[in-house]
Design a protein around this nucleic acid. Sequence first.
DNA 1: GGAAAAGTGGGGAAAAGTGGGGAAACCTTT
DNA 2: AAAGGTTTCCCCACTTTTCCCCACTTTTCC
Lengths: 145, 145
Amino acid sequence: MFLGRYEHTVDNKGRVAIPAKFRGELGERMYVTRWLDKCLALYPAPTFETLASKISALSIADQNARQLRRIFFSDAADLEFDRQGRINLPANLREFAGIGEDDAEVMVVGMNDYIEIWAREKWLEVQNEVEDDPNSIAAQLAQLI
Amino acid sequence: MFLGRYEHTVDNKGRVAIPAKFRGELGERMYVTRWLDKCLALYPAPTFETLASKISALSIADQNARQLRRIFFSDAADLEFDRQGRINLPANLREFAGIGEDDAEVMVVGMNDYIEIWAREKWLEVQNEVEDDPNSIAAQLAQLI
DNA sequence: GGAAAAGTGGGGAAAAGTGGGGAAACCTTT
DNA sequence: AAAGGTTTCCCCACTTTTCCCCACTTTTCC
């Protein structure tokens, strides 16, 4: 279970420390790809591979499915930790997520079965939207309990 | 059944003693997350895991559901007791709940199947609101009896 | 009143996060 | 094809934070 929110820096070599609490569950190999709302998604290898095969199974007759395939795989990368528990975010993904070049600040966010990586400013926007409208969250929670 | 209200202090390392009466029912592992009205909710592991899987099951196609997921999991943490029966409240959750840095006072409140943790001042405000308007409580109770 | 348990505080060891340097690999250029 | 330069990767070292353990005070219970 990936839980919690960590504020880390991306150094000028593109390296980000992954929170130590996440490392065990990620295992050795992991994948990163672009995700909804201009953030990045980081998956343990088995989770990603399951998702990838589902996407591969979509019909190529469907235009939307073809587009999804292209987007999903073209910006995906497989990663490993260096000895300090860091990963190297590819430049194209950093750009996609609005993560700057020099010592950019990012949020590494647990999402239960995967991890999201956000440019700090973008994450704060998301959070502010929620703070401005707390009742919609309450309403959704109420349906689940 | 978590019952009663205890006034404890959070030391400058973020540690709070959980009332001894709650420890047995909490078990070894527990989870804390942000909750409604700017307090924190503390759950025994099984209770939280049920709730977490319900939230994970929401459709990622729904923007509101994505937001709920992000907020819920990003401000959640799994915790264990130290040898003195204390837990360590993460800094982001302390901030959310308005729990200060140095020896802040909190209310640890039993809520039957979970526990709420409040900044002392916030708790007193809520209590005053209720005392100023006892009839609305009475009305709700009346429906149940 | 005494013993046990509960709550609080502090100090030291270990781990986590960050930055920098050097070697290897790659590409480009002459 | 060789040299130069750039990029990438790995390793080391420092700083900060976290965690664990011990000791003390207060409360509770017999």
